[in-house]
């Protein structure tokens, strides 16, 4: 089983390298995932990461890119709810990277 060690604690991951137990998430863990994703967390990154966490709390599903763009546009406005802005923050894929940093399951790749 994959795992991540943060401050001496061994945190289990799923087979895709995402957090295995959603309850174990912390901001420190988010920073560790961000380091693995080579994302330098700024206030803008945190805004998106916390947004996808809220999204998951409400809808119980990890957002794929299309709905992530729509949801952010609805809540934070079109300047942030567009794929160009999100890809600038998360070049390897906003849905894929932001959900991992947020400690959520990997989004379905068929949507």
């Amino acid at each position: 089983m994959l795992s991540l060690t943060v401050e001496g604690l061994v945190i289990p991951l799923d087979q895709h390298g995402y957090l295995a137990d959603l309850n174990l998430w912390s901001e420190k863990l988010a920073l560790e995932f961000a380091r693995l994703e080579q994302v330098n967390m700024s206030a803008e990154h945190w805004e998106v990461v916390l947004f996808v966490r809220d999204f998951y709390q409400e809808f119980r599903t990890s957002p794929a890119i299309r709905v992530l763009v729509k949801a952010i546009a609805a809540k934070l406005g079109p300047d942030k709810g567009n794929s160009k802005y999100l890809f600038m923050l998360f070049p390897e894929g906003p849905a894929k990277q932001a959900t991992r940093i947020a400690g959520l399951p990997k989004p379905a790749r068929c949507l």
Binding site: E58, F59, R60, T61, V67, K70, A71, A74
Partner: peptide, 14 residues
Amino acid sequence: CKDYTPAQKLFELY
């Protein structure tokens, strides 16, 4: 099983 019913609230967003 997982409670997947909250995802229906996304219909509006979609």
